[in-house]
C-alpha cells in the first residue's frame, strides 16, 4: 500500500513537471493564438467588416466627461470623434494612407512618422488576425499578476515603433492590461491600458470598460454600444476638405 502511494505521488509529480515544462515551452505564437481564440476565434473575427463604438470618457477626479464615437472598417480605415463642451470636437482619422487629426484648438493636422504608423496599426479592425504582418517579433516575458490574476506577458514589437506588452489572463486568455509607449509629435507618452468588463457581442468577447493611465491621469472609457457590419456612408473615412488642402500644400 505504501509502495502504491509512492508510485501515485511520483506519477503526479512527474505529470505536473511535464505540464510545467510544456507551459514553459509554450511559444509566443501559441499564446497569441489562444488570445485570439479567447476573444471569439478567427472565424468570428473574420465576419466583422466594420465596427461602430459609442462610449463616454471620464477623466477621474477632474470632472471632465467626453463623448466618444469610433468607426473602424477593413482593411485599415478609421475615424473617431471625441467631444465635450470644454474641448469642442476632436477628430482623428485615416483613409488607410493618410492619418490626420483636427480640433478647434489646433485645426487640421497630418500625423507623420511613428505617430502615423501607430494610428494606422493600432486602430486596425483586423489587428489580431494580421498580427504576424503587423509585428516583426512576439516573445514571452514571464508572468505577472493583474488585479490578482496571473497573466502571461507577451511582448509585441511592431515593424516600426516601440514594443507593447500584453498581459493575458492565464485562465481566460483575455487581455487584462497593455503597457505601451504612444508616439506623438510632442514626444513619447507611456500608457497603461486596462480593458475590463468583457461581454459578448456578435460572437466576440469585447471589453466594455477601458481604464487608461496616462501622465498621472486615469481616464475611464465606458462603452455604451458596439455595432458590427453597419451600413456606413461612403464618405465616412474620406479626408476632410481642410486636411486635403493641407496635404496638397505639403506636396
Amino acid at each position: 500500500m505504501r509502495r502504491l502511494d509512492r508510485i501515485v505521488i511520483a506519477g503526479v509529480v512527474t505529470l505536473a513537471g511535464v505540464w510545467w515544462m510544456l507551459r514553459a515551452a509554450e511559444t509566443a505564437e501559441a499564446v497569441m493564438e489562444r488570445y485570439i481564440e479567447a476573444t471569439g476565434g478567427r472565424a468570428a473575427q473574420e465576419k466583422i467588416r466594420n465596427r461602430v463604438v459609442r462610449a463616454t470618457l471620464e477623466i477621474a477626479r477632474q470632472g471632465i466627461k467626453l463623448e466618444v464615437t469610433t468607426y473602424a472598417a477593413r482593411p485599415n480605415l478609421f475615424y473617431s470623434m471625441t467631444t465635450s463642451e470644454v474641448t469642442g470636437p476632436i477628430e482623428q482619422g485615416s483613409d488607410g494612407q493618410v492619418a490626420w487629426s483636427r480640433s478647434v484648438a489646433q485645426g487640421p493636422q497630418l500625423l507623420e512618422g511613428e505617430a502615423k504608423e501607430f494610428l494606422l496599426r493600432e486602430t486596425r479592425l483586423d489587428k489580431l488576425l494580421k498580427w504576424r504582418e503587423l509585428y516583426s517579433e512576439a516573445r514571452l516575458d514571464g508572468t505577472e499578476e493583474v488585479d490578482g490574476k496571473p497573466c502571461v506577458k507577451l511582448v509585441l514589437t511592431p515593424k516600426a515603433g516601440r514594443p507593447l506588452t500584453l498581459f493575458l489572463d492565464q485562465a481566460t486568455g483575455l487581455m487584462l492590461r497593455t503597457d505601451l509607449i504612444m508616439p506623438t509629435d510632442a514626444g513619447e507618452v507611456p500608457m497603461r491600458i486596462r480593458p475590463q468588463d468583457y461581454r459578448e457581442v456578435d460572437g466576440l468577447k469585447l471589453a466594455h470598460r477601458v481604464i487608461t493611465e496616462v501622465m498621472g491621469q486615469e481616464r475611464v472609457m465606458t462603452i455604451q454600444r458596439i455595432e458590427h457590419n453597419v451600413d456606413l456612408p461612403a464618405d465616412r473615412f474620406a479626408l476632410p476638405a481642410d486636411v486635403k488642402a493641407l496635404l496638397a500644400a505639403r506636396k
Binding site: 489646433q106 514626444g187 498621472g216
Partner: peptide, 28 residues
C-alpha cells in the same frame, strides 16, 4: 499652441518642453 500656429509660419518649432514625471513633451 493653436494661436501660435497663426503667428509662426515655419514648421519644426516649439514653445518649449513640459517636464512631467512620466514624459517629456515638446510644445510643438
Amino acid at each position: 499652441l493653436g494661436m501660435a500656429g497663426w503667428l509662426v509660419a515655419e514648421r519644426g518649432h516649439n514653445l518649449g518642453t513640459l517636464i512631467l514625471r512620466e514624459a517629456r513633451l515638446k510644445a510643438v
